[in-house]
């Protein structure tokens, strides 16, 4: 496989009974790329993402993520990716430090490395004063930033972000995107879903799923040209409304 392609998907399909949730999608994502994965509710995004992170078996097709085949090496994929969703973030009844230690341990980092990572991470996020505070007591924006950092604790090749900024205030949302840019700049591939269309513009490339298929895939600039509109919201509306 080409080393620069960290996700390679070909004809990936998932059916539930008669229903085809993901219908033969094909795409590639390069190292260090910020890849936006958009679609209306029910378009098949979550199902597709679950296959890519190795927690759902595809019905047919091929997919290679972080160098591993989703059919045969799902466990290796899990070790080499990070995942963060809006819903499952961190343990509210563990402190900031305990959460970091816990997830570091889950990913099998040595104790010494966890300690180092923990200090760097807390300092970078400016959480020194609340390091021993229960995560449940932190504002949502802090939790989401912490959660993102924790998803990167084992230096994964790819990080999957499922609507990471829902409900977050606009300043924190931007700080969050600055963290995404930084991670991508340092070579981590970022695979992100969002309902904020201005965030789609932050991505290097964007795919839009409609009824299980990828109906558009390009840079935001080219998509806007292709659909002759001046923002991603209109691209989305044109495609999803059919």
């Amino acid at each position: 496989m080409n080393n620069n392609k960290v996700i390679q998907v070909e004809g990936l399909t998932k059916t539930f009974g008669d229903f085809t949730a993901v219908n033969a999608i094909t795409f590639e994502v390069e190292k260090g790329e910020i890849f936006g994965f958009l679609g209306a509710n029910g378009a098949g995004k979550t199902t597709a993402m679950k296959m890519l992170i190795g927690i759902s078996n595809p019905t047919s097709g091929k997919a290679n993520v972080a160098g591993f085949d989703v059919f045969t090496h799902a466990e290796d994929i899990k070790k080499n990716i990070g995942y963060m969703s809006q819903k499952f973030a961190l343990y509210d009844d563990l402190t900031v430090k305990e959460n970091i230690t816990f997830f570091g341990g889950i990913y099998g980092l040595p104790r010494k490395r966890i300690k180092e990572k923990s200090e760097i991470l807390i300092q970078e996020l400016g959480l020194e004063k609340v390091a021993n505070t229960l995560v449940g007591a932190l504002p949502l924006g802090w939790k989401q930033k912490l959660s993102f950092s924790v998803s990167l604790i084992h230096d994964p090749k790819i990080v999957f972000l499922d609507e990471p900024t829902g409900g977050v205030d606009p300043i924190t949302r931007r700080q969050f995107w600055e963290m995404i840019y930084k991670a991508a700049h340092e070579g981590t591939t970022v695979f992100v879903t969002t309902h904020y269309m201005d965030e789609a513009e932050y991505c290097d490339r964007v795919s839009i799923m409609v009824n299980g298929k990828i109906e558009a895939l390009d840079t935001p600039k080219k998509l806007k040209e292709q659909f002759k509109v001046d923002n991603m919201n209109d691209v989305f509306l044109k495609l999803a409304r059919g």
């Binding site: 209306a40 378009a43 809006q86 309902h195 269309m197 989305f236 509306l237 999803a240």
Partner: peptide, 13 residues
């Protein structure tokens, strides 16, 4: 109260 949170742009419109 937040009727459109988590809803895609088409349904929001």
């Amino acid at each position: 109260d937040e009727p459109t949170t988590g809803v895609d742009p088409v349904s929001r419109k």
